[in-house]
Design a protein around this nucleic acid. Structure first.
Lengths: 341, 341
DNA sequence: GCCCACAATGACAACGTTGTCTATTTTACT
DNA sequence: AGTAAAATAGACAACGTTGTCATTGTGGGC
C-alpha cells in the first residue's frame, strides 16, 4: 500500500541503502543518483516510516509534559511546540499530568518508555520539581525546561526562562507612577516559581520607591478565577482598601474585575487592575485589562528547537535563552488622582 | 537499557513468543507459565515497544484533526480524547490544520502515512468536508466524526452528533417566553454546520410562535469576539433594535456584551444575551452569560471510544451517538418587561 | 493399545528502517 | 603509470515485536 524505501529503490534503480542515504542527507551519494532518487521519492510520495526509524534507535518524536488548568496557556504552548515539530519533522506526544500526584515520576517514565520519545519539553510546575529532573538525569533523558527565573536560573540543563521578576517590577513601578500606594498583590499557586518571582519583583519596586510593604495587601491563593473573586472580596471588605490590584495572572484579574463589579466598585476609577499573561480574556473583558505579555508561543517554539538540538548534538551544543514580558497598558488602570474627580 | 520481551522470556525461562502471547492475552498459554511470565513482567516493569508493534502492523495511536481557533474547545476535546486514549493504552498524535487550505487532504494523508495512526477523530469543520471523507474512505482509513446534526445525520460512517438545532430552538423559545420578539441572531462561520443548524432552530422557534422573521436581525459572520463586536455595533445603530441577541457561540456573545457596554446599553435590562458553549468566559463575564452547555469532553471521549472499537472490530460493530446541549440560565437574560421598569 | 485431534509451546521470518562492513570506482600524488 | 587514499555504492544484520508454521505432549474414541 504505502510506498517503502524499497519501492523507491526499485523505481530509481539503486539499492535501498542509497535511498536511505539520500533521505537522511548523508551527502555521500553522487549528484546523478541523488536526483534519480529524489524524483522517485516525489513520484511515489514516499514518507519514511517513523516506527521503523524509532525501532532502529533514532527517536523522531518528543513529549510535552504539562500540568496547567489554563487552556490558553496550554494551547499556546502546544501551538508553538507543534509548529517547530512540524518544521523539523518530529511528532508530538502530549502528556498532561498532576504535579501533586505521588506517581508522577512513574507516570512520566512510563510514558517515555512506552512511546520512546527522544526528549521532553517540561513546563511549570513540573519543570521546577528537582525530584523529576534528577530521575530524568539518571536515565539520561534529554529535556528542555521552560521556567521562571532571571538570567540562567541554574546550570542543571538548558532551559528557556522567563524573567517574571523584572516584569512584575515594571508593572508595580507603572502603578506607582500612576500615584498608587496601596497596591494589593494577589499571588498564584505556590508550587509555581512564577508566583514567587512576581512577588519578589513587586516587593522590590515598592522598596525602591520607599513604600512600606503592607502584608495585609499580599494575599496568596491559586491561579484561578474563583480564587481571584474570593480574595478580592476579602480585600475590599478589609481594613486597608487598595487603590490598585496586581493580579498574578489574567484569570485572577478576571476574578478581581468580577468581584469589583458585584460590590459596585468602578474599574478603573475606583480600582486599577493589572493582570499577567495577555490572555484573550484581557482583550475581551470590559474594560480591557492592562497586563504583561508573555510570548508563550515563541517561548515554546524556542524550547522545542533547543530540545531538538540537544537531542542531536548534546547539552553542550546549546545555550539557555531568556524572555522578558512587556507591559501592555489598556483600560483597567488609571491615575489614582482621578478617583477624587 | 529498557527491558525487551526477550529479557522477560529469559527471566521466566520460556520462549519470547510465549511472553508475547501472554502480553496480548491470546489465552493459549498454560496457567503456570502464565503466572511465571506475569511475575517476570512485573519484576522488570516491562512495557511493550509501540514502535515495534506498529512496525509489525498493529496501530496503537490515533490522530486528532482539528481546525478551530477556540482554545477552550480544542483543549476540552483534547482532554476527552486523551482520557480515553490513556484508559485504553493508545497514544495521541495531534494535528491542527486549516480547512481552507488547498493542501489539507495531502496534509492529512501525509500525517497518517508518517505516523501510521490507526484511526482519526475528526472535528468540525473538517468532519463536514465530503472531499476529505471520500479520500479517507478510499484509503480505508478508520475514522469517527464529531459533527452537528439531528439524529444520525447520515450513514457514511459512525459519528458522534450534537443536536444544535433543538438546542437553538430551546434557547429561542426561552427568549420568547421572556417576552422578547425582536431577537437578533449572530451566526458563526458558514463552513461550520453548527452555525446553520442553530439558525434553523432559531427560525423554527420563531415560526412556531408566529413571530415574523426579520432578515435585518439575522447577521452572518465568524465565530469570533471581534466579529461579535462589529455586528452588535451595526445592530444597535440599525433601524430595528433587538431586545435580545442569540449569539452562535460564547465568543460572539462576549463581543456583543463588550459592544453593548461601549454603547452604554445595559445587560440584561436593555438587552438580553444568550451564548452557546458554556465556556469559562460565560462564567467569568459580568454578568454571567446565559448559554447552552455542550459536554465537549464527554463527546470527545465517546468519539474516541467509538473509534477504538471501529479500529478493532470494524464500522459495523458500532452505533452513532447523539448529544443534546442543555440551556443554562444565568444573568445575561431577563424578561423584556423589566425594560420599562 | 493405536491413532487422531487438539492444546501448548517454540523456531523462524517478516515489518521498514539505519549502522557497519566490504567492494568497487574515482581521484590525486609520487 | 602505479599506488594509496578517498568517495561512492551495496550486502547484510539488527532493532522488538507478531504471524505462521512446525513440534511436542496429552487425552479420548475406537
Amino acid at each position: 500500500m504505502k510506498p517503502t524505501i524499497k519501492d523507491v529503490a526499485k523505481l530509481a534503480g539503486v539499492s535501498f541503502k542509497t535511498v536511505s542515504r539520500v533521505v537522511n542527507k548523508e551527502g555521500t551519494v553522487g549528484q546523478d543518483l541523488q536526483e534519480k532518487v529524489m524524483k522517485a521519492i516525489k513520484e511515489l510520495n514516499y514518507q519514511p516510516n517513523l516506527s521503523a526509524r524509532l525501532l532502529r534507535g533514532t527517536a523522531s518524536s518528543i513529549g510535552f509534559i504539562y500540568d496547567n488548568p489554563n487552556s490558553n496557556y496550554v494551547i499556546d504552548m502546544q501551538r508553538g511546540i507543534l509548529g517547530e515539530c512540524h518544521r523539523q519533522g518530529y511528532e508530538l506526544v502530549i502528556h498532561p499530568c498532576e504535579a501533586k500526584s505521588k506517581t508522577i515520576i512513574d507516570e512520566i517514565i512510563g510514558m517515555v518508555d512506552r512511546s520512546r520519545v527522544g526528549g521532553l519539553v517540561l513546563t511549570p510546575p513540573v519543570s521546577e520539581m528537582p525530584e523529576v529532573l534528577s530521575v530524568l538525569n539518571k536515565r539520561k533523558l534529554k529535556y528542555v525546561r521552560i521556567l521562571s527565573g532571571a538570567n540562567p536560573p541554574d546550570t542543571i540543563s538548558p532551559c528557556v526562562f522567563i524573567d517574571d521578576r523584572t516584569a512584575a517590577y515594571k508593572i508595580t513601578q507603572y502603578l506607582i507612577d500612576l500615584g498608587h500606594k496601596a497596591i494589593a498583590f494577589l499571588g498564584g499557586d505556590e508550587a509555581h516559581k512564577s508566583s514567587t518571582e512576581r512577588m519578589e519583583g513587586y516587593k522590590a519596586a515598592l522598596k525602591d520607591n520607599k513604600i512600606a510593604i503592607d502584608k495585609k495587601l499580599i494575599v496568596g491563593g491559586e491561579y484561578s478565577f474563583e480564587s481571584g473573586v474570593k480574595r478580592t472580596r476579602q480585600l475590599l471588605n478589609g481594613p486597608t482598601k487598595p487603590t490598585a490590584v496586581f493580579a498574578c495572572n489574567d484569570e485572577i484579574a478576571a476574578g478581581t474585575l468580577f468581584a469589583a463589579r458585584i460590590q459596585g466598585v468602578e474599574v478603573p476609577q475606583q480600582l486599577s487592575i493589572v493582570g499577567f499573561e495577555d490572555s484573550p480574556f484581557s482583550r475581551q473583558a470590559w474594560p480591557n485589562l492592562t497586563t504583561a505579555q508573555q510570548p508563550i508561543r515563541t517561548i515554546a517554539q524556542r524550547a522545542t528547537s533547543l530540545l531538538i538540538e540537544v537531542m542531536k548534538h548534546g547539552e553542550k551544543s546549546v545555550e539557555s535563552e531568556g524572555f522578558y514580558p512587556e507591559l501592555i497598558v489598556r483600560d483597567s488602570t488609571c491615575p489614582v488622582a482621578s478617583r477624587k474627580g
